[in-house]
Nucleic acid binder design. Structure first.
Length: 584
DNA sequence: GCCGTTTTCGGCCCGACTGTTTTCAGTCG
């Protein structure tokens, strides 16, 4: 639905429609995307649709049409004049709606291949405002677009940001480098890197030397733009990096501005205007300063700016225009969970199956990272390629884990656990007698990702009925960069987990991330207990916990929403209660 | 097309960079 609304917005823009009308379609797309309740259930009650900010009478009617017929009159109208493939042109650098419209009216170009052909044939040169430079830029953009999906996982992006920061910091007089943009907001994938640089070398009268330093970094592939205090370039992997060098006096305003999100900023600026201020990346300033009075109200830190607006400082993870501004005005933002709140990590593997460290090494590593307890949860036999444990080996493994637990002498608790596979009929692939000896039983649906959606739903629903299952392990098996829709009925499964007090797992490792921030919000609203774990296969994997926490924060989760913020004993107690006797 | 403690009309965030424009349009974040 969000995609169709966004598509309509883009086509309207190409059609040179009223920009504000375009924006309202775009806002509606964002609002729709943020809903945690399926829209299908809302269309019967128009009041609920109208209650969503940015959805008015016209848009509500559009949404009803979309749900009932799959399209809407405005979209059908536009599709008679244009093609949806034109939207791929908009993603090319330098191509905006006006240019796409021009290409279409002058040369009937409607997709990237046609554009490339026309550019190479020299047909673009006869268009107004099109010199050789533009054509070259376009061809380079096409080439890059073809070999690149455009988004990068947050952990990879964070690493690259660190590398670049180190190089920039070599210049004398540069003090701090802060990643802004979606990396700072903790989105699970980012499209580009925004780096904010400040220090004495960034003051206006001397900044050109520092700009020169950044613009000549060895890892630059293509220099895209270079201004007074801004440098944009791409790396060889095509990731775009925007670096801004700003004086310390306006650093807070800049950080606030470049952190976004776009909608958060737009709303914040609207609120600023209502209060008689104007907000830019340089400062929050009074609109009409009196004679002899300075116009700047706040600029050096984000805290000052939000405070001057009568708000709490808003954590970057919440800046997505989903109610955070109003909560901040009311001084009622939640106390979000932090990495320090996490006491245990209860999903990890050892050399017994596909991990690379021993039980003892994992325990020592976790201790070093400040954890109070872990659970060793190696694979069960159905995952043969990981050398999964059968019942006999699993029981031996329990003894080995208990031995390490004793060796650690209470410095850290080591629980015995297992990651069992959920079989076709929904049963687990180890005997109840074995599972009954485990502290933590995680059930995962490893082998069923290719099944039709309803079969997956059925299988998961049957699995959570098993009284020995504590945690539904990476429930979607979803990969961050694949934007496929969820294959099964998430609502149904999460609801059942909540009823049976089965916890759902959020896998902290971005490579295996399970629940998006939206589904985490849904899980919370349905009353699910959530467990965040790293699924560590090595010691380094344990450090991915911070990325998991970021997603939890984006979902507005507090300490109380997450099981493994509890101390060891309380954690075990909070798991689904065992059956009183082992089933035959 | 949305919105309203300046409400049913007339607003709607703000600034930088590029290329080709001789004064600015288009794009971007």
């Amino acid at each position: 639905m969000a995609r169709l609304l966004e598509e309509t917005a883009a086509l309207l823009e190409i059609d040179a429609a009223d920009p504000f009308r375009v924006r309202s379609y775009r806002r509606a797309a964002e609002a729709v995307e943020q809903q945690t309740t399926p829209l299908v259930t809302l269309v019967d009650d128009p009041k609920q649709l109208l209650a969503i900010g940015g959805i008015g009478k016209g848009m509500a009617a559009n949404i009803v049409d979309l749900v009932r017929t799959g399209s809407m009159p405005m979209r059908d109208e536009l599709l008679k004049k244009y093609k949806p493939s034109m939207l791929e042109l908009l993603r090319l650098p330098g191509m905006g709606p006006k240019t796409v419209a021009l290409m279409w009216s002058a040369l009937e170009i409607s997709n990237i291949d046609e554009l490339e052909t026309a550019a190479k044939a020299g047909q673009l040169a006869k268009l107004p405002r099109f010199g050789q430079k533009q054509v070259d830029k376009l061809l380079k953009g096409i080439e890059d677009a073809k070999k690149n999906s455009g988004r990068y996982r947050i952990d990879n992006a964070a690493e690259i940001a660190e590398t670049i920061s180190k190089l920039i910091r070599e210049f004398p007089g540069i003090e701090t480098i802060t990643p802004a943009g979606s990396l700072r907001r903790g989105k699970e994938s980012v499209g580009d890197l925004d780096l904010l640089v400040t220090g004495p070398a960034c003051e206006p009268d001397v900044v050109s030397a520092a700009v020169e330093h950044v613009a000549s970094l060895p890892l630059i592939d293509t220099l895209l733009a270079r201004g007074q205090n801004k440098v944009s370039f791409t790396l060889r992997n095509q990731l775009q990096v925007d670096v801004r060098l700003l004086p310390r006096a306006s650093y807070g305003a800049a950080l606030q501005y470049f952190t976004g999100s776009k909608m958060h900023n737009v709303l914040l600026r609207q609120k600023a205007l209502k209060r008689g201020y104007t907000l830019s990346e340089y400062a929050l300033a009074r609109m009409n300063p009196q004679e002899g009075e300075s116009a700047i109200v706040a600029a050096a830190t984000e805290e000052e700016i939000y405070a001057a607006m009568g708000m709490q400082w808003i954590p970057p993870e919440l800046r997505e225009n989903c109610g955070e501004l109003e909560m901040a005005e009311a001084n009622s933002l939640p106390q979000l969970i932090t990495l320090d709140d996490i006491r245990g990590d209860v999903h990890m593997h050892t050399v017994a199956t596909d991990g690379t460290f021993t039980i003892r090494e994992m325990a020592e590593g976790a201790l070093l990272r400040g954890l109070k307890y872990i659970a060793i949860t190696d694979h069960s036999k159905n995952l043969a390629m990981t050398n999964g444990l059968d019942d006999a080996r699993a029981r031996d493994h329990i003894r080995a884990i208990h031995a390490v637990d004793a060796e650690m002498e209470g410095r850290i608790r080591v629980f015995a656990g297992i990651e069992v596979d959920i079989l076709q009929d929904g049963s687990l692939d180890l005997e109840d007698e074995t599972l009954a000896q485990m502290d933590v039983v995680i059930g995962s649906i490893h082998s069923a990702f290719n099944l039709p959606a309803d079969e997956q739903t059925e299988r998961l629903l049957r699995a959570v009925e098993n009284p020995y299952l504590h945690i539904l392990g990476h429930p979607t098996g979803r990969k961050v960069l694949k934007r496929d829709p969820y294959p099964f009925d998430m609502d149904k499964v999460l609801r059942r987990c909540a009823e049976l007090s089965v916890a759902v797992e959020h896998n902290a490792a971005p490579a295996r991330a399970d629940l998006s921030d939206l589904n985490l919000r849904k899980a919370k609203s349905l009353g699910c207990k959530i467990s965040v774990n790293t699924d560590a296969h090595s010691l380094e994997d344990m450090d991915k916990m911070r990325f998991g926490i970021t997603q939890l924060r984006r979902a507005w989760l507090t300490k109380d929403d997450v099981l493994n913020t509890l101390e060891a004993d309380a954690f075990l107690k909070a798991l689904r209660p065992r059956p009183t006797q082992v089933r035959a």
